[in-house]
């Protein structure tokens, strides 16, 4: 009884690592650029496919591939930013949303055209092994993804709060005009932040490849959940993202374990929690 409880908790923790990684990039883009990036999920998908092909063609382990996956998406997002995103930064919110949606559908369907719609999986030695900690058994692959997620998030915090670049990013997020007045190159900070956010998505994609697999349509489910998480956390609140990921992943895992036939209902719980959080918050502050 207790064992099942602990096992569920462990599963929730691992899932929340992926959620947090996928969502913090989105939160960064919303918080700093004030852009709702609908293509974030497709950036994740691109990262997964980069890692997949490196594994198939060059035999590189997908965990190692998170570096090239992140790098590829960092560079690609720079091009995307220069060619399109920067032109809608001052336009109405809807325009930016629809632009990134267009980018997302284009990437997704290009992937379908080039790779086909069938899901792909990688095979590594450690995917079949598990670590046993008392009553709880955790696969090595999910454990690695959790460790990588925690390390990356810690790294992101260190950059944001302990370096000059991080300070500049936070300054721009707080007040674009003010940052510009004290001499910061706002456009470059935007470019950099968007690159980091997109690279985080791609790395999350490589992690998902190890745990589940890659398919052109994998991004959308993640972006929906990532949206939900950042909204629940409060837009642009990075610490809140960690809590929201943990709460939502835990709720999802417990419903899946304890409610009979709960696989379908788990999704509903996720969105139900978000719905009530939002509504409750709006009525409390009003």
């Amino acid at each position: 009884m207790m064992d099942l409880f602990l096992q569920t908790l462990a599963n929730a923790l691992i899932q929340s690592g992926t959620y947090a990684l996928a969502s913090s990039g989105l939160a960064l883009a919303v918080g700093v650029l004030h852009i709702v990036n609908f293509a974030h999920g497709e950036f994740l998908m691109v990262g997964a496919f980069v890692a997949y092909w490196l594994s198939v063609l060059a035999g590189i382990d997908p965990i190692v591939s998170l570096v090239p996956a992140g790098a590829v998406m960092f560079a690609a997002s720079g091009v995307i930013y220069q060619a399109s995103i920067r032109r809608v930064l001052l336009a109405p919110e809807l325009n930016a949303l629809l632009l990134t949606f267009g980018i997302g559908i284009t990437l997704q369907n290009l992937a379908v055209l080039v790779f086909g719609a069938t899901p792909r999986v990688v095979h590594t030695a450690y995917q079949l092994t598990a670590v046993t900690l008392g009553p709880v058994s955790v696969g090595v692959a999910p454990l690695i993804t959790l460790i990588v997620s925690v390390a990356l998030l810690a790294g992101m915090y260190a950059v944001l709060y302990r370096t000059g670049v991080g300070k500049s990013i936070r300054a721009v997020a707080q007040n674009r005009t003010g940052a510009h007045l004290v001499g910061l190159d706002v456009d470059r900070i935007y470019l950099l932040t968007f690159g980091i956010a997109s690279a985080l998505a791609a790395i999350a994609g490589a992690m998902v490849l190890v745990r589940i697999g890659a398919s052109p349509h994998m991004g959308f489910g993640f972006v929906l959940k990532a949206f939900a998480i950042i909204v629940m956390a409060g837009l642009g609140n990075l610490t809140g993202v960690l809590w929201a990921s943990l709460v939502l992943a835990t709720a999802e895992a417990f419903v899946r374990t304890y409610v009979p036939g709960g696989g379908g209902a788990a999704e509903a719980v996720f969105f139900l929690l978000i719905f009530f959080t939002l509504v409750w918050r709006s009525w409390r502050t009003a």
Binding site: S84, L98, L99, F101, G102, I103, G104, I105, T106, L107, Q108, N109, L110, V112, L113
Partner: peptide
Amino acid sequence: YLAVYGVILM
């Protein structure tokens, strides 16, 4: 085919 749709939207 929706790739074309996406490009047009952009």
